[in-house]
Design a protein around this nucleic acid. Structure first.
Lengths: 255, 255
DNA sequence: TGCCCGAACTTGTATATACAACCTCCCGGA
DNA sequence: TCCGGGAGGTTGTATATACAAGTTCGGGCA
């Protein structure tokens, strides 16, 4: 592919994104100013402005009038992806969320996990197993693998206080996510953790998230079918919603 | 606050967003071209271009080179899952979709249906029961109620050739949708229609759609847990997707 | 009749220029 | 020492202009 086909503002953006992803530019670092980009890439200031402006709109950088452009603080860019954490969701309904840590360990990626995270078999990954409760009733079993290289201080976290997704988005902005929803019968361990009755089905969400263009997390979220449901709402922008406010993920089953 | 402080490109955006929100501009409607905005608002083309370009980046409109700018359909990457017809989805995977009509009748709305459609109990509604198959294997039981007033010619349709959702969006663009995903055990009738084994769970999607600001359709879509899953993908606009192409809704269970 | 070509319109990109608002820093005066 | 002001940098917005590439549609030619 010839780079010639790529618009110049796009080339500027890609260059800066690549330098952020490579770690060359780190959060709060100064990004080249419009004028510097004009000189170094021989583009007009409008083109440099467009590149930086779009990077700002996409959450990569922060711009301060009269000061400069800086790599964004990762915490601020949650708007990129609207995957709400179950803790926020439960809290939003005025209920009590708690998490019980079942396992937190470093492992070698094998089989499905290595494939999903696109790492070589045997690579270091962290393995998390957490039971989330709503008013002391289990509503989610979170079985998550995280690329170790990406989250070095994972073992030091207290995942009963901070959810894994909050921890991850604190390290770097999530750029992309993929999820699959299934209905299955739980295995014995899952059934026990979620205190489910025999024969009760499970709503399973399998989710992968990306940052810096690479998969960083692969999670299997199992929920008791009788106590959990996913809701979604779609409307053209600006439409006052004609339905009562709904949470994005989770919600106890009505009656 | 004086509107004078507002940048002109922002005023253009706000004007168009307001007209979309008010229903004056509806999905797929044509939005004024850059040239028209230049004439009507006395701005330069670059300013009009910026307004429309940002509206595009934010998902409000769709732009086609050489053709024009149009109000976007329902936000594609909303919250949980995208709305897509099962027939399209199956065809997209190169498989054979077929529909078997179990019931098509006019009824009086009662209880749950009347509440969901926000009509008075006893109002006329159409009731549809359709089994969708993929390569002759049942994958969805569609149990749908439609407000009769909205779709007068419903009984004349051949729902083995056109799906209800395609029929509905042909009458009027869907403005809003709401759905709930659950995992349950099917009742006997559902199990029989979907040829499910005893104890096999069901993935149920309950969906309501709006047009003209009123609910028009209420459907319960039941899928065999062993043969169906929902997939979703979220990325900021413009991001080349780093995962293999996935169908948005539906897909047979891998192994 | 049928087909091709061009006019007219659309969006996409790029440049040069201009002015305004804001921030930082240094220098000079009180 | 303290304070004020200005120089020079930064982003934010707006305009006029230009060319490229795509679509649509109708008219004219074979």
């Amino acid at each position: 592919m010839a780079a010639s086909a790529k618009p110049r503002y796009r080339a500027l953006k890609d260059d800066i994104i690549a330098r952020i992803a490579a770690g060359e530019l780190r959060p709060r670092d100064r990004v080249p100013s419009e004028h510097e980009l004009v000189d170094r890439f021989s583009v007009s200031r409008m083109t440099a402005n467009r590149a930086l402006r779009e990077l700002h709109a996409e959450g990569y950088v922060k711009r301060v009038t009269g000061v400069g452009t800086f790599v964004a603080d990762m915490r601020a860019t949650s708007n990129v992806l609207e995957v709400r954490s179950i803790a926020d969701d439960i809290a939003h309904r005025g209920r009590q969320h708690a998490a019980r840590l079942v396992r937190l360990s470093k492992q070698h990626a094998r089989g499905e996990v290595a494939r999903a995270l696109q790492v070589a078999p045997g690579s270091d990954v962290f393995h998390l197993l957490i039971v989330h409760t709503e008013n002391d009733v289990p509503v989610q079993l979170e079985d998550r693998h995280i690329v170790a290289e990406f989250a070095a201080d994972c073992l030091q976290q207290d995942f009963t206080k901070i959810t894994p997704s909050a921890y991850l988005s604190g390290i770097a902005p999530l750029q992309e996510a993929e999820q699959v929803v299934r209905a299955t019968l739980p295995n014995a361990a899952t059934r026990k953790h979620l205190e489910m009755q025999a024969g009760e089905p499970c709503l399973v969400v399998i989710r992968r998230t990306w940052a810096h263009g690479r998969p960083v997390s692969f999670g299997r979220l199992s929920h008791p079918g009788s106590r959990f449901e996913l809701t979604g709402h779609y409307a053209p922008p600006g439409t006052p919603r004609s339905t009562p406010q709904q949470s994005v993920a989770g919600g106890r089953r009505g009656k």
